[in-house]
Design a protein around this nucleic acid. Structure first.
Length: 930
RNA sequence: GGGCCUGUAGCUCAGUUGGUUAGAGCACUGUGUUGAUAACGCAGGGGUCACAGGUUCGAGUCCUGUCAGGCCCA
């Protein structure tokens, strides 16, 4: 018989390496086949609810690292909550309406204008659902435990209905109104365009300089003063209603030589501009800041019944022009915004085909907008206000399909009046907890500073605005009618709107005083997609039975302060008076290894599916808790490699624990806390505190904290200390003896606690471990409960004593290392250690009541008084002497003993070992040992 | 240009109300084991705390500015 066979060496088939890319998909299939998601929920049925409401990703394109971070983070939380006493469903969502999908259809060769709107929408729907399927498969590969069978999708009839009801609620409160706003307008395709449908080309344009005579100068400017403006779009002069100045820009009033009039220009532009007008010499009469001239008025160049209001705006620069910006609120976004602030009308003088309208005046009506520069010059010259014209070459937007230039043009739009309930929103924010806490400030500022919400879009693929027009064009915004439409959508889907006439969409027999003939028209615009996803609290929480409103948690990237956090808050406060969430957790963006933005064009992206295929999704999941997700996070192969090293350490540690508890039955072999050896009690306390800390970190969503604590616990407390000393117990001592069982009890508790605590993060690995734990009651680790924190009484003195011991151990390790370097010893077992202790140090060891020799892994330990130290060295306050051990080595425990050979049957074993072998391996007496 | 955020060892992170020679884990180097072995232990090297001013007896920690980077706007 071999000495080795009388030892209890660890044994397990759990592989050191996980082969994750291969094993994960198999394991996941098993979860999904066995509906583990619903099994867990069924088990939690009567527990308090926890509702993490999923923000819907847009159903287009491959999933990227941001998706993965988001879904994994949510999965970690939901899995933890389900194992920690909550009923926590996870209903994944998708955002499916909107322009990008229409563009995909165009790209695929479909022509929107060649088919009815409803047919186009059917194509869009099919495309969106395909994308949902694809993304769903990819999300499942991330190991996400969610209700994949029953996601919420914004194109689902019940979702659309809920959304329309939210709109109805807002309409009922008078929050919806019609206004107008400039949009990119393509006269060539007679439609509004989105940013993405525009391309820029350099073109030559005629720009004009002209003057506006002051009307009311507020006593600062007299009526012989003229404000000089510049425009690159002459046709917009017909709709000019203001002149914008920079509040802090300096303006000069100058009198050119040979001129009787005075002119105002930005001081910083005088040198560049005056030569154009032939003003070689001029006299500066005065200078003012833009803000001093605020609200002065001037005359429109030719329409002298119209006033031009002087305003201050941030968009004024001195890069070009005169520093005074001719402002036509109907023909520019900046113009519109500043005009709105000052209460100007957004006048539009061009029709949808690009021709000037009647209100441009008789000289312009009927002319194409781009052909009126000469007319404008003629009119300016006639009024003696024309100063110069200049050809400029600049970048100008074009319709990407017709390749014709576009214009900014105000068109009627539907708005949600944020202004009317802004204060409600802001005060609701005080009831929301933000993680990180600056999120509240960020969202607060955005809501405070934002304008009304333009909710209409001149598109096809979306939820129609459920508004009708009476014969006299009066819009009908009646909550009852809107709810009627919602009911229709709930049954038939929103395509019903496009497939039917207004009369079929209105309640039967509906009449309205504005429609004496009973005729109605329906609105053609659709809703902004942010209204879709922003209504998800209603679309999901109000339509599904197993989730509560408001949600416990919204968790998204920090871009969603502008997006979903924002739109959800607005619709929810508007409709219900309350925020849709109690907690908002935001995460940063993934960056490359150098801290730069990831982008396809830079080629520095990392695909989560690639990571899954090459390293295993567990590595990416572990990565998500290894970084501070409240900030931006760098990711690189080097970083992932480091994470995979951590993973291997975790895996090996679990493996060691399994190997050494393989012959342990927790139900029959466990040793109660009070009967455990001192070191086992100590480690039990460490484990208990560890469980508490990790659970606290989960409860507070401090993922990074979990990583740090787990890594430290596993490396420092477990691997470097407890498991290291443990080998001299679990291998050597009697297999069923108290010393070994005591330690195995702690091993097993540690193993199961670690496995459960890691499960939300490493579900595949945890389930793999679970297969090696035959005495556990549940089929899956995920169906078990998180480890409880035990009350072990006041352990502070015990921990304090052990802290001192551990610092002594550090000192001893240094002493042993020196002895090793001096080639006095090789391994610790070759050492005989002498400690010369002070009274306090003596007392400490007495209080520990532990086997210190064992803990230091030396063969012999002598404890003497400090006065007796002659050849000792002081290591950090500990007097230590190292000598080579005496006696001879036992081939079984590889320690030096002075009592070897006392048992005749085992001449090479110590007495203690001989007793063990005699009792547990009696066959060795006959066979002998070698 | 504005709102919000970040910059501590090669990497990921701690650094508590400003207070002694700035910490941890990984990686690295050396070394011991070879009964966790494509593992494990021990020891060690490594940081002008982005930069520049300022407040203070004293600043990684507070203030200002600069630089670099990110999200969202304009």
């Amino acid at each position: 018989m071999k000495y080795k066979d009388t030892l209890n060496l660890g044994k397990t088939a759990f592989p050191m390496r996980g082969s994750l890319p291969k094993t994960e998909p198999i394991r996941q299939q098993k979860w999904y086949d066995n509906d583990l998601y619903n099994q867990r929920l069924a088990q939690n049925e009567n527990k308090p609810h926890f509702n993490l409401h999923d923000g819907p990703p847009y159903a287009n394109g491959n999933i990227h690292l941001g998706h993965a971070l988001n879904k994994i983070s949510k999965d970690i939380i939901v899995r933890y909550k389900n194992m920690a006493g909550f009923y926590a469903p996870y209903i994944p969502g998708w955002d499916t309406h909107g322009l990008p999908i229409e563009q995909q259809l165009t790209k695929a060769g479909h022509d929107r204008k060649s088919m009815p709107k409803s047919a186009w929408r059917d194509l869009a729907k099919d495309f969106a659902l395909e994308q949902v399927d694809k993304q769903r498969n990819d999300f499942k590969r991330l190991g996400i435990m969610a209700d994949w069978q029953n996601p919420y999708i914004t194109l689902q009839p019940e979702f659309e209905a809920a959304q329309v009801r939210v709109f109805g609620e807002m309409a009922g409160k008078g929050y919806i109104f019609k206004g107008s706003k400039p949009v990119y307008w393509s006269w060539s395709s007679e439609s509004a365009l989105a940013e993405a449908e525009i391309e820029y080309h350099d073109i030559d344009s005629t720009s004009l300089y002209y003057a506006n005579k002051v009307k009311d100068g507020h006593g600062i400017l007299d009526d012989n003063t003229f404000l000089v403006v510049w425009t690159t779009t002459p046709f917009t002069v017909t709709a000019s209603r203001g002149i914008t100045l920079g509040a802090d820009i300096d303006y000069s009033v100058i009198k050119p030589e040979g001129e009787s009039r005075q002119f105002v220009l930005a001081t910083g532009r005088l040198d560049a501009i005056t030569p154009l007008f032939g003003w070689e010499k001029y006299e500066t009469v005065a200078t003012y800041k833009g803000k001093e001239l605020d609200r002065i008025t001037a005359y429109h160049p030719w329409d002298t019944d119209t006033e031009e209001l002087v305003m201050n705006g941030d968009h004024v620069t001195l890069d070009a022009g005169t520093g005074l910006v001719h402002t036509a609120p109907g023909f520019g976004e900046d113009d519109f915004n500043v005009g709105k602030e000052y209460g100007l009308d957004a006048v539009v003088t061009v029709d949808e085909k690009g021709y000037m309208t009647k209100n441009a005046g008789p000289d312009f009506e009927g002319k194409f907008y781009d052909d009126v520069a000469d007319t404008v010059i003629t009119k300016l010259t006639a009024a003696d206000l024309f100063l110069a014209k200049e050809k400029i070459n600049h970048s100008y937007p074009f319709d990407w399909r017709t390749k014709k230039p576009i214009i900014w043009r105000a068109v009627p739009q539907w708005f949600a009046s944020v202004e009317k309930f802004r204060e409600n929103i802001l005060s609701e924010l005080d009831n929301v907890n933000f993680i990180p806490d600056w999120g509240k400030k960020r969202l607060y500022n955005m809501i405070r500073d934002r304008g009304d919400w333009v909710i209409s879009r001149q598109r096809v693929w979306g939820v129609p605005l459920p508004i009708f027009y009476a014969e006299d064009q009066t819009p009908i915004l009646d909550q009852k009618i809107i709810n009627h439409v919602a009911d229709l959508f709930e049954t038939h889907g929103s395509n019903y709107w496009f497939e039917h006439e207004a009369k079929d969409l209105l309640p039967e027999g509906y009449t309205n005083e504005h429609s004496p003939n009973g005729k109605f028209k329906k609105e053609e615009d659709i809703m902004d997609v942010w209204f879709d996803s922003g209504s998800s609290w209603a679309g999901v929480m109000n339509t599904r039975e197993n989730v509560d409103y408001p949600a416990d948690l919204y968790l998204e990237g920090s871009d969603q302060y502008r997006g979903w956090f924002n739109s959800s808050l607005i619709t929810s406060v508007a409709a219900t008076g309350h925020a849709p969430y109690k907690n908002v957790l935001s995460q940063g963006f993934t960056l490359d290894g150098n801290g730069n933005k990831m982008s396809k064009s830079l080629g520095n992206t990392i695909s989560p599916l690639d990571v899954a295929d090459k390293m295993g999704i567990e590595i990416l999941r572990l990565w998500t808790i290894s970084v501070d997700t409240s900030q931006d996070m760098p990711v690189s192969n080097e970083i992932l490699k480091q994470v995979s090293e951590s993973y291997r350490k975790l895996r090996n540690t679990l493996r060691f624990l399994m190997a050494n508890t393989a012959d342990f039955n927790n139900k029959t072999d466990s040793i109660p806390f009070n009967d455990r050896a001192a070191h086992d009690q100590y480690f039990s306390v460490l484990l208990n505190n560890f469980v508490k800390d990790i659970r606290d970190s989960y409860d507070n969503y401090q993922f990074n904290d979990i990583f740090k604590r787990v890594i430290n616990f596993v490396n420092v407390d477990l691997s470097a200390f407890y498991l290291d000393i443990a080998k001299d117990v679990v291998y050597v001592e009697a297999p069923t003896g108290n010393a070994r069982r005591s330690m195995q009890t702690v091993f097993y508790e540690t193993l199961t606690a670690l496995t459960k605590l890691l499960l939300p993060i490493l579900p595949h690995t945890a389930e793999e471990v679970w297969e090696y734990l035959p005495n556990e009651d549940t089929d899956y680790a995920y169906l078990s409960e998180m480890p409880e924190v035990h009350n072990l009484g006041d352990t502070s003195q015990l921990l304090q004593n052990w802290d001192v011991f551990m610092s002594m151990r550090d000192a001893v390790n240094k002493a042993l290392e020196e002895a090793r370097t001096a080639e006095l010893i090789g391994k610790n077992a070759e050492a005989a250690l002498t400690l010369y202790l002070t009274k306090e140090q003596h007392q400490l060891l007495t209080d520990l009541n532990a086997n210190v020799r064992l803990l230091l892994m030396v063969s012999q330990l002598y404890v003497l008084n400090e006065e007796d130290a002659t050849d000792a060295t002081n290591y950090d306050g500990w007097l230590i002497a190292v000598k080579h051990a005496v006696g001879s080595v036992s081939p079984r425990d590889r320690m030096y003993h002075e009592d070897i050979g006392l048992d005749d049957a085992f001449p090479e074993l110590s007495k203690h070992e001989a007793d063990i072998v005699r009792e547990f391996y009696p066959e060795a007496i006959q066979e002998g040992l070698e």
